[in-house]
């Protein structure tokens, strides 16, 4: 087997995550799908790191994790406060971005 397969897997996971973002309405699940996409990217970075034989890819993946952690904290805080004010976690309920 060639490590390229990891890339195929990552592409598959990324696409599944993206489709989830588009399909699901529960903000928390949407958020999880975003995390899935980030993880797919991390897998790509790690696989490339191995292919090219240097550690920079892993460093980027590491930073991705850190930023994802910050993002999750903020995102979940937004979801909680949104739920508190609207009593719903559906992304479709917050449809104020229109005329």
């Amino acid at each position: 087997m060639n490590p390229v397969n990891y890339l195929y897997l990552a592409a598959l996971l990324f696409t599944i995550g993206a489709s989830g973002v588009l399909i699901r309405r529960n903000a928390i699940v949407v958020f999880m799908c975003v995390e899935l996409m980030l993880n797919a990217c991390n897998l790509t970075l790690v696989a490339f790191s191995r292919m090219h034989g240097n550690l920079d890819g892993q460093i980027i993946a590491f930073f991705t994790m850190v930023v994802a952690a910050a993002e999750v904290v903020i995102g979940l805080a937004i979801i909680v406060s949104l739920f508190r004010s609207r009593h719903s976690a559906s992304v479709d309920d917050a449809s104020l971005m229109k005329l």
């Binding site: 990891y6 999880m32 790690v46 696989a47 790191s49 892993q58 993946a61 994790m65 952690a69 979940l76």
Partner: peptide
Amino acid sequence: VFYLANGAYFLGIVQVVVYTGAIMMLF
């Protein structure tokens, strides 16, 4: 596990501890 398999030992552990352990529990 795949990270570990790809030689990213540190990231593999961090993935378990931070992602699966902390972030998913926060979820």
